[in-house]
């Protein structure tokens, strides 16, 4: 197992380097720079700014400077927010984005697994069709539609929950977590149903039932562990998606997370912030995929024996 993890970590380094290089080239290739704006900047000022941020240097020098600073853990200053470093901006937004992602994941798992089991235990009945149709709607309904709908109903009409914010008013974390989580709950539900159906048709389940075990024991003790496997493999990408994809939710609910910067930085040509957030999210995706792989191996005894060969 250790060897497997080590190997994966070593593999991640070149992946990350490629991501950084591609992002660096792309963001510098995009037309317009960090200082172009509607009110023309005097040429003297533009020159001073380019010198200050070393944008007047050849791209290769800028690139090697960037990598050298990165190796020291320095992500540089932000162009758009000159008084702040990229690390500072990431550190400020990270806890919020993590918290939002975590709650959303809880919502996704609780709702998704519940609906999946419900559907899988009575396939092709109303108990299957109803949650699965809802899940289909959930997958199709983008968060920027679902979010405002939830806000209008629970926030403005019923006045039960705050319409925006994150930790300012009691209960303001509920709607954003629901909105973000429900979209993923739909995927989880479908994956869980599929996994459960497959397991429930296997011999050992028939044996368990034949032994006269109560149905709940069959489902929760015997079937669930295997049935959840597709869900677990999905967790890695899902968690990365939850964190990286929180941009819409953060904008809708006025949440000071990282997702907003990730997108805005690209629009602003804030080179260092684009690279910083890209590195941050890529690392997250790599880590989560690794964790999901480890969990999959751990859940599946067959893979556990083969893990050496698999890695």
């Amino acid at each position: 197992m250790f060897e497997f993890v080590l190997k994966r970590v070593l593999q991640a380094i070149p992946v990350l380097w490629i991501v950084i290089t591609v992002a660096f080239l792309f963001v510098h290739a995009a037309p317009g720079g960090p200082f172009s704006q509607e009110r023309a900047v005097p040429p003297e000022v533009l020159k001073a700014l380019n010198e200050r941020y070393k944008l007047d240097q050849p791209l290769l020098i800028q690139y090697s400077d960037y990598l050298r600073n990165l190796a020291r853990g320095d992500l540089g200053p932000s162009f758009k927010y000159p008084g702040r470093t990229v690390s500072e901006i990431i550190l400020a937004g990270m806890p919020v984005t993590f918290e939002l992602g975590f709650y959303a994941l809880l919502v996704a798992l609780a709702v998704g697994i519940g609906a999946g089991i419900l559907a899988a235990t009575r396939p092709n009945t109303m108990r299957d069709y109803l949650p699965m149709s809802l899940a289909m709607v959930g997958i199709c309904l983008p968060t920027y539609v679902l979010g405002p709908l939830l806000v209008l109903f629970f926030g403005i009409r019923l006045e039960w929950l705050p319409v925006s914010g994150w930790g300012y008013l009691p209960g303001d974390k509920i709607l954003p977590s629901m909105t973000l989580g429900l979209a993923y709950a739909a995927y989880v539900a479908r994956l869980c149903r599929g996994g459960m159906l497959e397991i429930l048709s296997q011999d050992f389940i028939r044996t368990a039932r034949a032994k006269g075990l109560p149905e709940t024991t069959v489902i929760y003790k015997h079937a669930l562990r295997g049935g959840l496997q597709p869900v677990v493999s999905f967790l890695g990408p899902a968690l990365a998606g939850l964190l990286g994809g929180s941009f819409v939710i953060e904008t809708l609910f006025q949440i000071p997370g990282l997702g907003r910067y990730y997108v805005q930085a690209a629009f602003n040509r804030d080179y260092t912030l684009v690279l910083g957030t890209t590195i941050f999210f890529s690392t997250l995706i790599l880590v989560f995929n690794l964790l999901a792989d480890i969990a999959t191996v751990w859940l599946n005894p067959r893979l556990r024996q083969e893990d050496g060969a698999r890695a």
Binding site: P148, V151, L152, G155, I156, E159, P162, V163, S164, G165, T251, L252, F253, Q254, R260, Q264
Partner: peptide, 16 residues
């Protein structure tokens, strides 16, 4: 800082 006009309008309606 509220970049989204619709979010801002909802906040206004909720008396924030």
């Amino acid at each position: 800082p509220i970049p989204n006009a619709s979010t801002e309008e909802r906040m206004f309606r909720a008396q924030q």
